[in-house]
Design a protein around this nucleic acid. Structure first.
Lengths: 139, 139
DNA sequence: GTTAATGTAACTGATATAGTTACAACCAAG
DNA sequence: CTTGGTTGTAACTATATCAGTTACATTAAC
């Protein structure tokens, strides 16, 4: 399962946009209904991926680029795949004396990487701006 | 991340097929390089999904249908989504006094379910028989 | 300077995963 | 009908991840 960091990250970006950047991590935490440190940790990941900018001591968070140019895939990648980029765990150290143990990884990787790519391309079709638009339209 | 249960399950199915059902969980564990109980636990999930059949005391595992009719999605569903069926965790209990908190789930679910469907449809394109064929062809 | 915010470290509790031991239930074969 | 090997599970451990929390150093606006 993909953790709630992803959906919380989208929540954060929407709030920043709706409040035009003039919002604190405490206020965001109040909307998400969690602790402000949880928000700041996710903001830290979004910063490292160059999606937002913030500075100690200064109230507010700036979007580096507009939400129309940030896709759900960008967010997913920022908070769920910080180092390793692989969705499926494939067991290693199999018995090379066995034909299946010797070749399972090579045989399995292509279809798994294809599936991961389909997931990512689907996420890339939707911008955070579209999600925010839906939120606003529902009032 | 999707756990290694999935790739181990494919490994198990391949071995059953290559050995025409005449194989024990101990032997499978030797090929996967893990404990036999880990194998039996995954076999239990495959049984509950109707992919294999085995009986206490009787050596061997039977494929209920041929590997040409078992897709990677069938395996994924059997071992990774036994109860809940949802890939993405969306945070709940958000603040309904806030427009974003009130609507984030409804706005986010459709694109996330689309992405999940794309992943699953991609997995469904490949049968375990194709994976086994690749394994055998690599020798 | 005072105040308020960000950025992190450190700890806790809950949950998932994989590995392991132990054992009951079962059946085939001698 | 007993023996030996196998399956199916329960129970425990170790490890990792996630989310929540407290604490505090750093920073800048006022």
């Amino acid at each position: 399962m993909i953790s709630s960091r992803f959906s919380v990250a989208v929540h954060i970006l929407s709030l920043i946009d709706v409040h035009a950047g003039k919002i604190t991590s405490e206020r965001i935490a109040g909307s998400v209904n969690t602790n402000a440190v949880v928000i700041r940790r996710i903001m830290s990941l979004l910063s490292k991926s160059g999606l937002i900018e913030s500075r100690p001591g200064v109230t507010g968070i700036k979007l580096v680029r507009p939400l129309t140019e940030i896709t759900l895939y960008d967010v997913y990648r920022a908070v769920e795949l910080p180092e390793n980029d692989v969705l499926f765990t494939v067991h290693q150290n199999t018995n090379i004396k066995c034909m299946v143990g010797r070749n399972i990884q090579n045989a399995l990787m292509p279809p798994l990487l294809d599936a991961q790519r389909e997931l990512e391309q689907s996420l890339a079709k939707t911008s955070v701006a579209e999600v925010t638009k839906t939120i606003v339209s529902q009032g």
